[in-house]
């Protein structure tokens, strides 16, 4: 395997892992709020979260570019105050994959929380457990398989992210090229053999991730 293919594979695994890990805590928190609480603006947040699933990924990428670009409200702040540049760096790849994976994870996690019998949480409260205690000893353990399955799904989605990534991170060799971008780039350059190798790697990784997710979901059903 040529060096750049190995590099692209490892880079993709790295950003997809980081992107989906970043999604876990806020995603689980939001999923729990959607599953268990009523609050004003809930319907709006639900829609906003689902939006990246239905609008073209390139459009999501454009929105992120406007927000995180140098002159964008968030990007400007980060660059001027924190000295962190995001757009067209590996951080942009992580951001794009995280945003694209977020709705998928939240949906799966929400179902996982909804499946936990609320009476069990009530029982725990009557046995002296406070709200956090109930969450960590009852809700989370009972939902954990669904959450892991959601995490794997988010990871698989992150592996293949293309549209938002190319918009926000560009195609900078050695810096922002993932498997999906690599396939496109190799085909553009007429290097079809390399493209096919990248394609095989993508399929293998996605297959492994989905298979793992299926196993977890099946065990949960049993």
């Amino acid at each position: 395997m040529p060096d750049d293919i190995l590099h692209i594979t490892l880079f993709t695994l790295g950003v997809a892992s980081l992107g989906s890990v970043l999604v876990l805590a806020p995603g689980a928190a939001l999923a729990w709020l959607l599953a268990r609480r009523k609050w004003p603006g809930k319907a709006l947040v639900e829609t906003l979260v689902a939006l990246p699933l239905v609008i073209p990924p390139v459009a999501t990428g454009l929105i992120l570019l406007k927000l995180f670009g140098r002159r964008g409200p968030i990007g400007g702040f980060m660059e001027n105050v924190l000295g962190v540049e995001i757009v067209f760096t590996w951080k942009a790849v992580v951001l794009a994959t995280a945003v694209m994976s977020f709705p998928l994870f939240v949906r799966t996690a929400r179902v996982a929380f909804e499946e936990v019998d609320v009476r069990l949480e009530h029982a725990a409260r009557t046995l002296g457990a406070g709200p956090w205690d109930v969450f960590f000893t009852i809700t989370l353990p009972l939902a954990v398989r669904g959450l892991v399955a959601g995490g794997v799904l988010a990871f698989a989605r992150a592996l293949g992210e293309f549209g938002a990534t190319i918009m926000l991170a560009g195609m900078i060799p050695g810096e922002t090229i993932t498997l999906a971008l690599g396939i496109y780039q190799k085909v553009q350059l007429g290097q079809d053999d390399d493209a096919l190798v990248l394609l095989s790697v993508s399929i293998a990784l996605a297959f492994a991730a989905l298979w793992l997710s299926e196993c977890l979901v099946k065990r949960r059903m049993a």
């Binding site: 019998d117 069990l120 009530h122 029982a123 009557t126 406070g130 353990p141």
Partner: peptide
């Protein structure tokens, strides 16, 4: 007084044992 600070026991109709 929140539920978890009230010293009572509650037996639910369906037992509500923790399956894990």
């Amino acid at each position: 007084v929140p539920v978890h600070r009230r010293a009572f026991g509650y037996v639910f109709q369906d037992a509500a044992l923790f399956p894990h």
